[in-house]
Design a binder for these strands. Structure first.
Length: 426
RNA sequence: CGGGGCGUAGCUCAGUCUGGUAGAGUGCUUGCUUUGGGAGCAAGAUGUCGUAGGUUCGAAUCCUGUCGCCCCGACCA
């Protein structure tokens, strides 16, 4: 992609209406565009990051035997009346179809997935299994906040597992728990943790949230040295003492990026999902569900990892792996070489952005900081005289001190590819 | 849904109190100079002042309705 053709508007100066650092940067860098209150368009840049986060999630969900599906965004009310949530859940957006049918935009998919799973399940031999999707949800929240931190429409990875026994659910719950740590680490998040949480509208007994510890967060967390960690929602007492060890609890703010629930039989019971067990009796499976806010995860990354000039991605999440900046010179030496390296990298399938604009260096550097490709190649007259391409790194959570700060002109393409590999395997 | 605030050029805003027919900065276009952290000079384009109605000789400005957006609260991933 050439930067002039990248359909993204970056802003200079203040962003009206944005209050948190992450929100300002996301708008200033042109990652998100507000279409309406609580609804954002993900720009080519923002969508690229989201897509990369989604792929990390896919890999880790598949690694714990998840099976990806796609369910409808909209649903008729009948399924939701089976569980009683059509009338019980406050955030559901409802509408009437042309025929007068009651529809809703799904705020979550327990009913829909259970309907599918019950159509498949007949025998205990099929258990356990986990189904997941990455899809848009809509919750008609009373209030939105801070860009992608709290929206009405949002992309969520939602996963649902079905089990014969509570022990099997607990074992799988732990696998998913561990997968979440891998996902968030790969996304470049650093200061995150799990906390006990309330089960809210989902039901069930045990639930954990994954929270990025951050001042901008909406949630208050209680944390104790003994390992006890809980959302204030759950442990909402006047006491500031740890219920486990009695010591004083620490209070921090968090951004909720994921949550997992041991649902039990709330949905499988009310929706009459059954199978024949080994002993020939009819049984109801036990269910778990596992969510990640995908857009919110992007927002959380920016909130945590950014400097005054823009976001700092890692190689797994950056919208471009490489940005090539060609600097203007009188003899027009640098630009053609920048373009040539660009063509070669592109031919090799590298995610690369070229900035050969007729613009000053400062403007190009400032834009590069906002786009934040981990590898920045600077092609200039000055460097070409030494037969080198200058390299700058902008990487979250990676010590680049051992990496070269220049590549040879002849070896540039393979040097770039080697460096990408290094940045991916830290 | 309660409380507060705001809608004027692509963006950030002034002008509204005290009515007289549209501004600044920045961005954009063209030319020349410049070119390693958002350059300089010159010329140029850009608005039904959110919207509907009312008052008035005359409304961005006053009045009423309505829509949208921001912040705080309650609700929630």
């Amino acid at each position: 992609m050439k930067i002039e053709n990248l359909c993204v508007r970056r802003l200079i100066g203040d962003v009206a209406g944005a209050t948190t650092r992450g929100h300002k940067i996301a708008v200033k860098g042109g990652y998100i565009y507000q279409t309406f209150q609580g609804g954002y368009t993900l720009t080519p840049l923002g969508w690229s990051v989201v897509h990369k986060i989604e792929n990390i999630i896919r890999e880790e969900m598949n690694a714990i035997d998840g099976q990806e599906i796609l369910m409808p965004v909209v649903c008729t009310a009948d399924l939701w009346r089976e569980t009683g949530r059509y009338d019980a859940m406050s955030v559901i957006a409802k509408f009437k179809g042309a025929s007068g049918a009651d529809y809703l935009i799904c705020p979550t998919h327990e009913e829909v997935v259970t309907d599918y799973a019950r159509s498949v399940l007949t025998s205990y031999r099929q258990l356990p299994f986990m189904l997941y999707q990455i899809q848009t949800k809509f919750r008609d929240e009373l209030r939105v906040r801070a860009g992608l931190i709290r929206t009405r429409e949002f992309i969520m990875k939602d996963a649902y597992s079905f089990h014969e026994t509570q022990e099997d659910l607990e074992q799988y719950y732990q696998r998913c728990f561990d997968a979440y740590y891998r996902i968030f680490r790969r996304c470049g998040l650093k200061d995150f943790t799990d906390v006990l949480s309330s089960t809210g509208d989902m039901g069930g007994k045990i639930a954990h949230e994954f929270q990025l510890i951050n001042e901008m967060g909406e949630d208050t967390l209680y944390i104790c040295d003994c390992g006890f960690r809980a959302n204030k929602e759950l442990e909402d007492t006047d006491s500031t003492k740890c219920p486990k060890c009695g010591k004083e609890l620490k209070k921090v703010r968090g951004i909720e990026i994921g949550n997992i629930f041991q649902l039990g039989k709330k949905y499988t019971d009310s929706m009459h999902m059954t199978y024949t067990a080994a002993d020939g009796t009819e049984q109801t499976p036990i269910m778990g569900c596992y969510g990640i806010g995908v857009g919110r995860t992007m927002a959380a990354i920016i909130e945590e990892s950014a400097d005054d000039n823009g976001p700092i991605w890692n190689m797994e999440t950056a919208p471009f792996a490489v940005e090539i900046i060609g600097l203007i010179d009188k003899e027009n030496k640098a630009l053609p070489i920048a373009e040539k390296i660009y063509d070669e990298l592109r031919r090799d399938g590298v995610d690369v952005l070229l900035d050969n604009r007729d613009a000053r260096a400062g403007e190009k550097f400032a834009d590069a900081d906002l786009i934040a490709a981990p590898i920045r190649l600077i092609v200039s007259n000055k460097n070409l005289d030494n037969d080198v391409i200058e390299v700058k790194y902008r990487v979250n959570d990676f010590d680049t001190s051992a990496l070269p700060n220049e590549f040879g002109i002849k070896t540039c393409v393979s040097d770039v590819k080697n460096t990408i590999t290094k940045l991916l395997h830290k």
